[in-house]
Write a protein that binds this DNA or RNA. Structure first.
Length: 288
DNA sequence: CCACTAACCTGTAGGC
DNA sequence: TGCCTACAGGTTAGTG
């Protein structure tokens, strides 16, 4: 479930606790999540200081004192929680990884990873360029490389639907189903639009593509500000829910009225490459 | 190389 | 209540 804003929320929530903390113990309660834990997972971590925590696309990266990094993807239902060392964790369901950490004052606390569906995974890497999960990722939506012309250069000879292209993590990294639907609604682009239709004969980005890049940043910014979205099982580190889901214009709103003034149309739901797409058939006209 | 599907899992919501 | 089905924020692996 977590898309970029949710992962960003987790990173910012964890940061004050884990940055500078030392890893005293690590316990994995099974041999795999989506994938097997790497060999030497525990021995690589124990004894190391977490020097910083950051985000790349939908991944969390814990940088360690030994120049290695712990990589974590939350999949659909993964989550980290900070707990008091005295807290009873015996009844916690789907608890797969337990970290015992010491803060700078030497005080112990726990960081736990829960994940009912186990679509998440963890790995260890040294350099991003050698990490199989990171090396093929596209640009960050908030990075300098992301702009309409970057998209135009990729899109000019492609005929894939824009919805599918925006979910492709090798083009833009961090967007998921919710925010793609929302961004396309904001930019008034039909989700089935062939991406080459957003580029002119000279390979220049059309205005609609400019608007789309702005919409993507706008929607992500708003969601981060709101602390991410909460559907079934995403909670930020401290346990409170994000509340961006109250601001969805199309996602999950099939048959409800479009939020645009004077539109009056009802939101449609279709399936594209196996995922649900929500859009307004009146505001987002099909141009191909 | 691209495009599509199935697969990985569990929980939940809705219909009957 | 319970049973059954469909579906869910993501990504990879396999097929054609």
């Amino acid at each position: 479930m977590p898309e970029l804003p949710e992962v960003e929320t987790v990173v910012k929530g964890l940061e004050p606790f884990v940055a500078g903390a030392k890893i005293k113990q690590v316990k994995t309660n099974r041999k795999n999540l989506r994938f097997d834990f790497p060999r030497n997972f525990i021995s690589t971590l124990v004894g190391q200081e977490i020097t910083s925590i950051s985000r790349r696309a939908k991944y969390l990266i814990f940088a360690l004192g030994n120049e290695k990094n712990l990589l974590s993807h939350l999949g659909m239902s993964g989550n980290f929680t900070i707990l008091d060392v005295e807290a009873d964790i015996s009844e916690i369901k789907h608890l797969h990884v337990e970290f015992l950490l010491n803060d700078k004052q030497g005080k112990s606390f726990r960081l736990i990873y829960t994940d009912p569906r186990r679509f998440g995974f963890m790995d260890i890497f040294t350099h991003q360029k050698d990490c199989q999960f990171l090396k093929n990722l596209g640009v960050e939506p908030f990075g300098n490389l992301f702009n309409a012309q970057y998209m135009a250069n990729i899109f000019k000879n492609k005929r894939t639907p824009i919805k599918t292209a925006l979910l492709d993590q090798t083009i833009i990294a961090g967007l998921g189903n919710i925010y793609v639907c929302e961004a396309l609604w904001q930019a008034k682009i039909h989700p089935k639009t062939s991406v080459n239709m957003l580029v002119d004969e000279q390979g220049q980005a059309l205005l609609r593509l400019e608007k789309l890049t702005i919409a993507i940043r706008t929607i992500l910014n708003a969601a981060i500000k709101a602390g991410g979205s909460t559907l079934n099982d995403f909670h930020s580190v401290k346990g409170q829910s994000g509340y961006f889901q109250h601001n969805f214009d199309v996602y999950g709103r099939e048959d409800e009225l479009c939020n645009r003034k004077n539109c009056g149309a009802k939101i449609s739901k279709i399936s594209q490459s196996g995922r649900s797409t929500f859009f307004c058939p009146s505001c987002q006209k099909q141009s191909i």
